[in-house]
Design a protein around this nucleic acid. Structure first.
Lengths: 146, 146
DNA sequence: CTAAAACCTGACATCCATGTGAGAGGCAAG
DNA sequence: CTTGCCTCTCACATGGATGTCAGGTTTTAG
């Protein structure tokens, strides 16, 4: 029952996929090497992708940006592709782990941002004091790490 | 008017600083090389720190964890130490930049976490369907990158 | 005094995503 | 056919924080 959707699904070559995702050709080949992205090959060996791969590449990038390694991403993607009892067990556990790691990391980042805010506020306060001609010049202001 | 606070401020050596911060000795030396952490030296050349350096090392680690590079951290720390008109101008700009970068990154991470949640939810739904014996088996569920 | 433990410098090793370059083949347009 | 551009594979380079090893001095404990 494989109904062809109008016939020739426009073939996307690696250069186009690269420019449409903002990811370098080199990286796309690397993703394939890491088993994150698969391609059909033309008789001459050129990689052929489909439109749907654009989304996939963006998702991969998003996971990289979140600090996941290739190995972990490779572990999760099959489940995202098509959940099945074979892959979902371990993958679900993994995802939950990564989700928690992310949550913790986000909290860390917020703390750090607050610390930066504190330092900036202190520095601005100091400048105010300077402008209005106060003494008490040097007040170290490490933002007591939380 | 240098009043000694009771006399000998307990000297902290590098091994102790390492164990009290959870940062390796190697890394502490590296921080010094990068001009993030300074040490007094004993006549024989051993590094002597003070209690206050513990906080500083933790702060450095926090900044590393937030994705700042040594170079940037080195740019910010003098201002955090003691704000002065010399350093605060450029450093304040830098800090604002990093603060914004952090905010953007946090937003990204939250989106990624949401995407993971979506994938997990779909996978769980699928398992439910399996358990209750539904058809419609394979429904790819890429979480349409936002 | 002696042995163990901690420290010093210097240098090379590692991980991982990505850059870069070489040399060769594929494919469309003039 | 030729020119130009895209693609292929292979392989080495890079950067940044950290690990690790070697060979030597200092400090501490018994």
């Amino acid at each position: 029952m494989a109904h062809a959707t109008g016939g020739a699904e426009a073939v996307v070559r690696i250069g186009e996929l690269a420019s449409r995702t903002g990811v370098s050709v080199r990286s796309l080949r690397y993703y394939e090497e890491q088993d994150l992205l698969h391609s059909a090959r033309s008789p001459s060996g050129q990689r052929h992708y489909e439109e749907t791969h654009i989304e996939r590449v963006l998702f991969i990038q998003q996971l990289y940006a979140a600090g996941l390694s290739s190995r972990v991403i490779a572990e999760l993607l099959p489940c995202a592709d098509a959940p099945s009892t074979e892959n979902s067990d371990s993958a679900l556990v993994r995802m939950a782990q990564e989700r928690d790691r992310l949550t913790a990391h986000i909290a860390d980042l917020i703390r750090t941002r607050d610390a930066l805010d504190t330092v900036m506020a202190k520095a601005r306060t100091y400048r105010e004091q300077l402008r209005t001609g106060q003494g008490d010049a040097t007040a170290a202001c490490r933002p007591s790490v939380q």
